[in-house]
Design a protein around this nucleic acid. Structure first.
Lengths: 249, 249
DNA sequence: CGACAGGTTGAGCGTTTTCAAATAGGGTGG
DNA sequence: CCACCCTATTTGAAAACGCTCAACCTGTCG
């Protein structure tokens, strides 16, 4: 099902970087996080990382690749609730609510780092800064969830799709990814499920955005040559991403 | 602007009850929470409790009345992101992200209990159970935010409105409120903003639900004579509310 | 009584959906 | 290298769900 190996060293940099987006962390804090008993794992595209109802004993960081979080209606309709990029902790909520309430699935071949709950808990008990950084990352994710509700509830298809692309591209950019050469990892079906639209309408809207020069497409994937141009039609304001680091208390 | 008095004694029971929905708390933990330096405050209907961008130094629990959390698009369209019922902590995220990213507003004349961040932080540092209970409550809220995205993104008007009513009524019920005699505190405008619909369409859908016997209306407000009947047309499954308490670790 | 907020209703419109079918592209096996 | 398959994209036509606009009604409170 998947390869597993032990002890990454520098691979966790993306995660540290993500935490530092919101929290000032000392080098010792970073070193302490790196020296946790991480296990590396790889997962193939579309592999399920967790299913609703699962009970897991470990936390997962996405180091390479992409993943998404989703939930289904009783009719089986899917809503994508989050897109995860390298550096993101993807299931740290299971630390406190061990029964998964969402599914997690790889969007691309991915590399994960996993650590047992108890090891992470020990470190958090020992280092308040680390605990705080993790809390804060979870609460930023919560703010992002709320923005998605606003997006789906109150923006039309053009702004909606644009907004989601603005967010993902911004989050990639602050992690140091070169957007010009990085197609976003979403198929039109996935964009549809992330925005509450149908794939057909996503296709038409993308075509129109592309015709207006707001994005280009290569191999069916979306590239944003000039993300800032999209901000305007999306009404995108990155404040909800909380990109100014807070000092740990 | 508002009355303020000190030191509630038993009034915090609703809050303790809410925390105990998700976490097993000892009597000592509960007593420690009660003995924090809470300040009581009352707010009139429609009063703003926080505005986007505000920086606050205290955490607020809603003890009586109702409140909601909302965000606006750049066009000024409102999306309601959460409905708060008595017992709910409404802004504990500010403990870690002091700049408010949403507005908070009273839906009815309300009674609040407020405590300074530093006092709450001290208690959380001292009592891991309390810290855990609060974390868990915030993560349950996060799960609820995600369900709202699913609701707005993937359910039609009938199921959507029903689902929101099911959730609010369930959360009231587990807090011990008698639903038969408690009209939900939402105007049709507010239901519209909570579901991403227009007031006109909410009106028509409510009328249809009422004609089918799923709800009754008194003074323009909604009453659910038999909430379980609504569950079916809403596709409501309360698992995402995490109503089984976890033992603190 | 008048004012105001919220609720109700009708008619017409438009964004988005549905259904259906065709096209394109990548990967695999022969 | 081609044939084939599978998935994702694209396009068209028609229908539907929900929206807009505009007017009217109702209850409450001062």
């Amino acid at each position: 099902m998947s390869a597993t190996r032990a002890k990454p060293i520098t691979e966790l940099n993306a995660f540290i970087k993500r935490l530092r987006l919101h929290t000032v962390l000392s080098e010792e804090d970073a070193a302490a996080i790196r020296s946790l008993p991480w296990m590396m794992a790889t997962r193939k595209q579309n592999a399920h990382l967790a299913r609703e109802g699962d009970i897991t004993g470990q936390c997962t960081v996405l180091l390479e690749g992409y993943a998404h979080r989703f939930r289904l209606t009783d009719e089986g309709e899917r809503q994508i609730l989050a897109i995860y990029v390298p550096g993101d902790p993807i299931d740290f909520d299971h630390l406190y609510l061990p029964t998964a309430d969402d599914g997690l699935q790889a969007l691309r071949d991915s590399v994960l780092a996993q650590v047992q709950h108890h090891a992470l808990r020990s470190l958090m008990a020992e280092r308040a800064n680390v605990a705080e950084a993790i809390m804060r990352a979870m609460l930023v994710d919560s703010s992002i969830f709320r923005e998605w509700t606003l997006n789906v509830g109150r923006r039309d298809a053009r702004a909606r799709i644009s907004h989601m692309l603005c967010e993902v591209s911004t989050r990639l950019e602050v992690q140091g990814v070169d957007l010009l050469n990085t197609p976003l990892p979403l198929t039109q079906d996935q964009i549809a499920d992330a925005t509450g639209l149908t794939p057909v309408h996503v296709n038409r809207t993308l075509k129109s955005l592309s015709a207006d020069g707001y994005l280009t497409r290569r191999k069916g994937l979306v590239i944003l040559p000039n993300p800032r141009a999209l901000w305007q039609i999306a009404g995108f304001d990155p404040r909800y991403l909380h990109l100014q680091p807070n000092r740990a208390t």
